[in-house]
Design a protein around this nucleic acid. Structure first.
Lengths: 156, 156
DNA sequence: GAATGAATATTTGTAGGCAAACAATAGGGA
DNA sequence: TCCCTATTGTTTGCCTACAAATATTCATTC
């Protein structure tokens, strides 16, 4: 018999005193979130093709949605900070999927826009992106899917 | 009037033909997951202190749970691949929180164990780690929290 | 017009995160 | 014993991700 917690003393109403032993990594939100994100990343990679990453896709898709935007705003709309969006735009630029120009009306801004190539690719990938979301959620029933999205959105 | 979709023709039962316009980045699971993870990371950073990162905490906590383990197994148990866990163990080693030794029984293995310092720090941080999970979930009622964890676990 | 503070962009440094290629060892089976 | 395969660990390269420091420009206020 080696248990460190043979008979935990109850106290106060019906509760237990929280013990360090109660902390199990595998049931913490943060840890589970990371695992779900990893699974999603795998699915993304398998279905998207074209060497496009999730963040790159976010930038492309958002540009398709809203048209040319400043690099900084694009970052905010895709939840990337200034340094991160810079790298993403740089790599998309190297592949000729976006182009950047100084904003004539505001010398601070760098306007990012899809190239024709970028538009074509984005249109081509959109159905795959939709499939990625479906496959990711596939283990859940439609009702569960709706519930999950609602709950996650509250934590956003 | 510039709408590209003035009167979508219905067909087949009650449905609509899915259109590219239906894809909105902000309601995709992957994108929302990233945002929730980001919020969690901020909370983690604010509450944990000691310059410990989420992955480093995962390693510390898991070592506390199960005792000395091979580096590779530790990686699997914390959902990190071999290259990632190597870096994490390296940085924890620099801070004297873990130590590594060759496994006498298997020359391939590198056994990772908490140092006394590492054990002390882990014990100290465990209540904070628990608080991080609570604060992250705080926008949800207890019932919602349970439901969310159950749904996420199915996607793990 | 000048000062001030906010917004935008860039650079550097640190830390995950993974793929791919590689080396070494372990474990079995022919 | 020898060979084959799986496991473990390392290294390199590329891509996020963010903090912090810096420079430039804009907008506001005085």
């Amino acid at each position: 018999m080696t248990s460190r917690k043979p008979a935990p003393s109850r106290q106060g109403g019906n509760g237990r005193k929280p013990d360090d032993d109660d902390y199990v990594l595998d049931s913490q939100v943060g840890f589970i979130l990371r695992q779900v994100s990893q699974r999603h990343a795998v699915i993304f990679d398998e279905l998207i093709g074209e060497g496009v990453t999730p963040t790159q896709w976010a930038a492309l898709s958002k540009l398709q949605e809203i048209g040319p935007t400043s690099q900084n705003l694009l970052g905010r709309l895709t939840s990337m900070d200034a340094a991160t969006i810079k790298g993403v735009v740089l790599r998309l630029g190297k592949r000729q999927l976006v182009e950047t120009n100084p904003d004539p009306g505001d010398a601070r801004r760098l306007v990012v826009r899809l190239t024709e190539q970028g538009r074509r690719l984005t249109r081509k990938l959109t159905p795959r992106a939709a499939a990625i979301s479906q496959v990711t959620m596939a283990p859940l029933t439609p009702e569960e899917q709706t519930r999950l999205l609602a709950l996650l959105t509250k934590l956003r």
